[in-house]
Design a protein around this nucleic acid. Structure first.
Lengths: 137, 137
DNA sequence: ATCCGTTGGTTTGCAATACAAAGCATGGCG
DNA sequence: CGCCATGCTTTGTATTGCAAACCAACGGAT
């Protein structure tokens, strides 16, 4: 079955990227999850529950996660005028700067891998990856 | 820059696969790391240090990890006749069975995604992924 | 043969991550 | 108003991870 080879490649690729992300995050004392939070908040301002669902985490997990990030001045909690129960989360300027920095480094670190492809192959790979991951099930 | 799109796709893909692995692991009380241990031990019998290096973890982290897996009867520690200091790790029959089971499920879960590709695209994607990840840097 | 530095693992202490269950406040009904 | 649902936090517990200290075994040098 050819799809086995594909699954293997996907999983292997996953752990390699996870390794890169973890290493880069560790240099700034950011866990994989924190890194992901920063990435998500770059272009969103979700409420706690939304963010938890996005990350596939429990609400209670997120409370602690945001607590720590807030204590470091990376994110902030905002009140939602429509519904006083909900808590919106967003990046502080410092958080945004760190996010951009880190993701710049990620691009740089992965460049050594992605540069092995010529532009056509690169485009093709992007297309294929999109095809594979388009539906979140 | 086209490589930005590629990096984005790789990272997004990574988190999607991590999500699948985490979910399937959770059904059997296996963390992502435990899952990976099982995957690695399927066709290897490394010593503790080798396994730690493979996973990018500290030796001390691995001790606890293997402790718990051993307590569940999934792996075992073996003495190395050449050097009495080293501890070899390998899957028990139960561990092997669980590993096969879980990775079967992973294949199944990802099949809904991979099946979207025709065989040619699938092969092409495998090729491209291999090209990207061939050197671990 | 002994000394001693190196290597291989474990132990201990600490922080972060994650879940579940319980709790608290707000919202939105009937 | 009474009551349940929703949104988030708190509390308790297990796992994961690192660093530092530790012990045991190896191996070369004297």
């Amino acid at each position: 079955m050819t799809s086995d080879a594909l699954v293997d490649a996907l999983v292997r690729n996953t752990f390699q990227v996870v390794g890169v992300l973890t290493r880069i995050g560790a240099e700034r004392d950011l866990s994989l999850t924190q890194l992901r939070v920063l990435g998500i908040l770059r272009d969103r301002r979700p409420r706690m529950t939304e963010l938890a669902a996005f990350l596939g985490l429990d609400k209670s997990t997120l409370s602690g996660l945001i607590d720590r990030a807030e204590r470091r001045g990376l994110v902030a909690r905002g009140k939602n005028p429509q519904d006083r129960r909900v808590v919106d989360v967003f990046l502080t300027p410092a958080g945004l700067e760190l996010a951009e920095q880190v993701y710049g480094e990620v691009r740089h670190a992965l460049a050594s891998a992605t540069d092995r492809l010529n532009p056509q192959d690169s485009d093709r790979l992007v297309q294929l990856l999109h095809a594979v991951l388009c539906s979140p099930d």
